[in-house]
Each structure stands twice: as C-alpha cells, then as structure tokens.
Computed example of a mutant assay.
Amino acid sequence: MWALTIHEFAHGYVAYRLGDITPKLHGRLTLNPIAHIDPIGFIALLMVHFGWAKPVPVNPLFFRKIKNRRLGMLLVALAGPAANFISALLFLILLKILTPAPIPPSIKLPLEIFLTWGTFINIGFGIFNLLPIPPLDGYHILEYFLPVETLIKIKRYEPYGMLILIAIIILPPFTSMFVSVINGISLAMAKLVGINLF
C-alpha cells in the first residue's frame, strides 16, 4: 500500500504547492492509505496482486504559482513516479544499514524481506505509471510535449485507455519484459547504493 499511497500523495502535494487546494479539500494530502483506497482497485490488489488507488483530483485553473499550466500538470504527473523511485532508493539505503546491524534474525529477516519487496514494488509501480497510455501518468507527461493539434486528435482515444492497459497486462511478452525492466533498474539502484539484492 505504501507505493500507492506515496504515489497519490506526491501528486496532490505538488498540485497543492502550485496553488491548487483541490487535493486538500478532498482530504488527499495525507499518508493515510485509507484516504487513497479505491475499493475495486484494492480488491484487485488482494486477488491478482495488481491494483490502483483513487486518482487525486487536480484543477490546473488554480495553479497560481506557475504561469504555464501545462508545465504544472507535467510536474504533477512526474511527482507520482518520482516518489516511487525515491521510496525504492530509501528502502535500499535502509536495507544497507540493516544488513550489518546486530539485530536478532527473527526481526531482521522480516524487515529485509519487506524492504526488498518494497524496492521492487515501488520501482514496478513507478515504471508502469510511466507508460504513455491514459489514464496513467506517462500519458499526461506525453501531453506536455505534443502539439495542441495532435493532442486534440488523440483525446478521442482516451476512453479506450483502460481496455488497452488490460490487453497489454495479460500478454505474456509484456509481463516478461516488464519484470526484466524492474529487475534491471532494481539491480542498478542497488549497485549505486552498494548492496546486493540477490
């Protein structure tokens, strides 16, 4: 749940810092996971280990601290995946500190498992959300770089985004490639921190 919670909190926090009070009004500027739970997404997470949270409501018309609203939405979109990658890095740092610590195995082992899986989950969630498919963050990031004319044309396909995502997810080649990317980035980050994950 941490990956989902920090992801949505980051979206709301950045929007709030830009002047939008909408996330605060909806009670989303919190690290309490209950505030971010989508019932269906949570059930899916428990049953098939793939879920989602409630999107944080954001209104770029309230962005008072930045003139370019499209840039503001880009920053909001980037905040979620960035929070996941930062979380993964912090988990790896904690894992490095924990490994040589004189802690009883009954305590150390569960913590090591939690931090290791937390690393993979955060990286996986961050990468997945960077896919340029609506309603994911990657699509909103792409919007910033597209000409307005092109953006108007592709807007008509937004309602099919979830269907495209489901089709991609159930395809074995995507799953295999996705896991490989997660492992590769996880190992690269672990090497940066100076720790072996395997």
Rank of each mutant, 00 (worst) to 15 (best):
K65I: 12
I40N: 03
P159G: 09
I127D: 04
L142E: 03
F114V: 09
P55F: 02
L18K: 01
S87Q: 14
P147F: 01
A82C: 13
G138Y: 09
I152R: 15
S87N: 09
T30Q: 02
G124A: 07
L151E: 12
G72F: 05
L95K: 09
P105K: 08
L74D: 10
L142H: 03
K155T: 14
H49Y: 15
P100R: 01
S106A: 14
K153I: 13
T116V: 10
P39Q: 11
A35P: 10
G126F: 11
T22P: 07
L131W: 04
D20L: 02
G80T: 10
A79Y: 06
G27S: 00
I34N: 07
M47T: 15
G27V: 00
E143F: 08
L131T: 02
L115N: 02
L71G: 06
A101Y: 03
L74K: 08
I93R: 04
L94G: 05
W52E: 10
A79E: 10
F63K: 02
E112P: 01
T30R: 00
P102V: 00
L98N: 06
T22S: 09
L78T: 11
L31V: 05
I66N: 01
V58D: 07
K153Y: 13
R69W: 02
N122F: 04
P60T: 12
H49Q: 15
P134M: 07
D38I: 03
P135A: 07
P60R: 14
I43K: 08
A101K: 07
K108I: 04
I113C: 01
K155Y: 14
F125Q: 09
K155H: 13
A79S: 10
I141A: 03
L92F: 09
H26C: 11
T22D: 08
K108L: 08
I154W: 00
L94C: 14
I34E: 12
Y144K: 05
I86P: 09
L75D: 12
T116A: 12
L146M: 12
I107A: 07
M47A: 13
A83N: 05
L75C: 09
V148F: 14
L111A: 03
I123E: 02
V56G: 05
L94S: 12
P134A: 06
K65L: 14
L131F: 13
F91Y: 13
I40F: 13
F42S: 14
P60D: 13
I113W: 08
A35E: 12
F91N: 15
D137I: 06
F42E: 07
L25D: 11
F42Q: 08
G118D: 01
L78G: 12
L136M: 09
P110M: 01
K67I: 13
G161Y: 05
L115Y: 05
I86G: 10
S87F: 14
S87P: 07
I107Q: 11
P105F: 06
Y144V: 04
I123K: 08
P57G: 07
P104Y: 06
F120I: 08
F145C: 01
L98W: 03
F120L: 13
G138A: 08
A44R: 14
V76A: 09
L25S: 12
L25F: 08
W117F: 12
L46H: 02
P147G: 06
D20M: 00
N129V: 07
L90Q: 00
D38P: 12
R64G: 10
T30D: 02
